[in-house]
Nucleic acid binder design. Structure first.
Lengths: 194, 194
DNA sequence: GAGCATACCTACTCGTGCGTAGGGTTACGC
DNA sequence: GCGTAACCCTACGCACGAGTAGGTATGCTC
């Protein structure tokens, strides 16, 4: 039943999706949808929640915290892109939708914040192992950028059905890890004096 | 008048924004809005278009094509974040909105495609100068990731009014350029055999 | 088989907001 | 002063879709 909702929401977008269509698609009638899952908003949140949880589990399951940073990142990315590849419409539109609609942006922001935190933690851990440190804000911003790049590639992946998730993950590693590794080794870029 | 529309669209989101509110905010009445700018969709597209054009101009004006790649990237980023910083609500919500709503996603995709193309062209140019080459797809994906990371930081910037655009641009360079530079020098990351 | 409950449906109400019809007001020509 | 034309407004029609009321069938208890 949630599956039907996810499908319709992704096909139409939150507003354009009608409860009638969801009901029809689920093979039941509208009052049933209301009985089981409440209002349209609640239904959407339920979808978002389920997909989000699944995704987080997929990632958390793959990236064990005792691995070295690059290995963790790689496995996390692989799991992430694998998940998106397997749930293309689920991801694409739930995610894109939720981003725009104020009532749900919060829910999503929390999810992203968790991811950012994980990535930032990972970087921080790796940095300390190298005997280095950077300001928490910088760390957060870098993590944010990495997460953003990843989300962006996920969008790309969702739009390119023929693309291979693992290959995409490799490409992401090429951008992200090589850059991050530099930072870890103390190499930084500075603006020209101009 | 477009200013009013942008303001309301960003405050409310596309659907929640009512034409009445836009009209009121612009200090005129609804039929006038229709007379000048047509339907709600057309109005939104007009907003999107204007903001997009302004942004592209800001970037294009800053990143002259005859500069070296890193310098171009840096100036482009500075211009971009500067623009976002100066038009926080304009950017944030128009952009986030357009992403989700199917009728406008295309418009936005075109804009992003132009950006990706520019970035990819830049990388390609730099690569050739080093006597190297990579597949066009890889190039596109890397460019896509960079653009995505940048957009993501733009979101972050829009949500943190106290943050400094130029500093954000520097942070972005730290992630993007150090990574990209590695690629340019032929350093790549490969997945472990496992 | 009568009484009852559970599961579900059809068919409605009602609010909301886009787009417009038709009327008032001011300025100008004659 | 009267016609008229440009301009802008108030006030409405209308469609659409969320949420619900009230009725119907199926199965279960005694």
């Amino acid at each position: 039943m949630l599956d039907a909702a996810v499908k319709v929401f992704s096909r139409r977008g939150f507003h354009a999706a009608s409860m009638d269509e969801i009901a029809e698609d689920a093979g039941i009638s509208k009052p049933m949808v209301y009985a089981y899952l409440g209002t349209k908003e609640e239904l959407f949140v339920a979808c978002l929640h389920r997909e989000g949880t699944r995704m987080m589990q997929a990632i958390a399951g793959a990236a064990a915290p005792d691995l070295p940073a690059d290995e963790r990142l790689w496995r996390g990315l692989k799991a992430f892109f694998g998940f998106v590849g397997a749930h293309r419409d689920g991801w694409a539109v739930l995610y894109r939708q939720a981003r725009g609609e104020q009532p749900f942006a919060g829910e999503l922001a929390t999810m992203r914040a968790r991811l950012v935190e994980v990535v930032a933690g990972m970087l921080d851990h790796a940095l300390r192992a190298e005997g280095r440190e950077i300001a928490a804000v910088d760390l957060e911003v870098v993590a944010y950028a990495l997460v953003g790049a990843t989300e962006s590639l996920a969008d790309w992946l969702a739009d390119h059905p023929e693309a291979d998730p693992e290959k995409t993950a490799t490409r992401m590693m090429n951008v992200a890890w090589l850059g991050a590794a530099q930072l870890l080794h103390g190499v930084t870029w500075r603006p020209p004096a101009d």
